[in-house]
Amino acid sequence: MRIMVAALAVALVAASPAATVDDLGWLAGDWVSEAGERWTEERWTPPRAGLMLGVSRSGRGEELREYEYIRISRGDDGAIAYIAMPRGGAPVAFRLARHHGNSATFENAAHDYPQRIAYVRDGDTLTATISAIDGSKPRRWTYRRR
Rank of each mutant, 00 (worst) to 15 (best):
R2T: 14
R2A: 12
V5Q: 12
V5C: 11
V5H: 12
A6W: 10
A7R: 14
L8E: 13
A11N: 04
L12I: 09
L12K: 12
L12N: 10
S16L: 11
A18H: 09
A19C: 06
T20M: 06
T20V: 06
D23C: 03
D23S: 10
L24I: 08
G25P: 05
G25I: 09
G25V: 09
L27E: 00
A28V: 06
A28Q: 09
G29N: 01
S33R: 11
E34Y: 00
E34T: 15
E34F: 01
E34G: 07
A35F: 11
G36I: 08
E37D: 15
R38E: 15
R38Y: 10
R38W: 13
W39A: 05
T40M: 12
E41S: 13
W44E: 01
P46R: 15
P47W: 03
P47F: 00
A49Y: 10
A49K: 13
V55R: 08
S56L: 09
S56A: 14
S56T: 10
S58T: 10
S58N: 05
G61A: 05
E62L: 12
E63W: 06
E68G: 02
Y69V: 09
Y69W: 11
I70P: 03
R71Q: 13
G75A: 15
G75Q: 14
D77I: 04
D77V: 03
A79I: 07
A81K: 11
Y82C: 01
Y82L: 10
I83N: 00
A84W: 03
P91I: 06
V92S: 07
V92P: 01
A93L: 08
F94N: 03
F94I: 04
R98F: 08
H99M: 15
H99T: 08
H100E: 11
G101K: 15
N102M: 14
N102E: 15
S103Y: 02
S103G: 08
A104D: 03
T105E: 11
F106Q: 03
A109D: 13
A110N: 14
A110Y: 06
H111Y: 13
H111V: 04
D112W: 02
D112I: 06
D112F: 03
D112P: 02
P114C: 05
R116W: 01
D122G: 08
D122W: 00
G123C: 06
D124R: 14
L126H: 01
L126R: 00
L126P: 00
T129E: 04
A132G: 09
A132N: 14
I133R: 12
D134W: 00
D134Q: 08
K137V: 02
R146S: 12
